[in-house]
């Protein structure tokens, strides 16, 4: 599985876009990490409360359920940027040059198409839970202490939209690599061997 991959950078527009986007993605990933941390603290508060003053955190489950989308979605584009979403790369590891870029282009294209449909669907899911005229804008609430669910639900289309931007960028890069028969396209995760090859080439060039 391709977990070892690297992204090349240079001063081209494509790479600059990639690096700016990566800053936003990193921020989102950190938010996701902090949410994991808060999950831990939530349990500490609830357990301590129960054992010391016989008062667990009210709505503990509801709060966990609210935090989960933060953890599950926010880092999705960051992970795609760094090639962290696992895949079977036994076939692609045999491919080189144009045939590799063609396969990558096609799989990323399908990913983008399905994400557009899912962004639409998850936005609709959010929209059903949101009502400007209702108290707290809420049309759907959690089971125990009735926290509005729309803030958690909107995280899906937001994080997925960032992923769609990332996929578009990768699509351009793979398309360009295919068109110009590039060996080392910018802004996309390269299977390790290709990256190593690229690094070697770079070192021979620089002497």
């Amino acid at each position: 599985m391709a977990s070892n991959s690297s992204v090349l950078v240079d001063k081209s527009l494509l790479s600059k876009l990639d690096q700016s986007l990566h800053k936003i993605e990193s921020l989102f990933a950190l938010i996701s990490g902090l949410a994991v941390f808060s999950l831990m603290m939530l349990a500490v508060i609830s357990v301590t409360g129960r054992h010391s003053i016989n008062q667990p955190l009210p709505g503990y489950v509801d709060w966990i359920e609210q935090a989960m989308p933060l953890i599950a979605f926010m880092g999705i584009a960051y992970t795609q940027r760094n090639g962290g979403h696992i895949r079977m790369d036994i076939l692609v590891s045999f491919l080189k040059g144009r045939s590799l870029w063609a396969v990558e282009f096609i799989t990323v294209l399908f990913m983008l198409l399905v994400m557009i449909l899912i962004i639409w669907g998850s936005w609709a899911h959010f929209a059903r839970s949101f009502d400007f005229s209702a108290p707290m804008w809420s049309r759907d609430s959690s089971m125990d202490i009735a926290i509005p669910l729309w803030p958690a639900k909107i995280l899906a289309p937001v994080a997925f939209s960032l992923l769609a931007v990332r996929l578009t960028l990768q699509l351009i890069s793979f398309g360009k690599a295919f068109a110009y028969n590039e060996t080392r396209p910018m802004a996309v995760p390269l299977v390790e061997s290709a990256a190593a090859q690229a690094a070697k080439e770079a070192s021979t060039v620089s002497g």
């Binding site: 994991v36 941390f37 999950l39 831990m40 349990a43 489950v61 966990i64 359920e65 609210q66 935090a67 989960m68 989308p69 953890i71 599950a72 979605f73 449909l117 899912i118 962004i119 639409w120 669907g121 998850s122 936005w123 609709a124 899911h125 959010f126 958690a152 639900k153 995280l155 899906a156 997925f160």
Partner: peptide, 30 residues
């Protein structure tokens, strides 16, 4: 069909990850 399928699929991410039991996964990794 496209609309209904997209909306049905679009519910799944939020609906399924908002689970107390799944919160064990990130904690265990941490």
């Amino acid at each position: 069909a496209l609309t209904v399928a997209s909306k049905t699929a679009g519910q799944v991410p939020h609906s399924k990850v908002s689970s107390q039991a799944l919160s064990l996964i990130p904690t265990f990794i941490l």
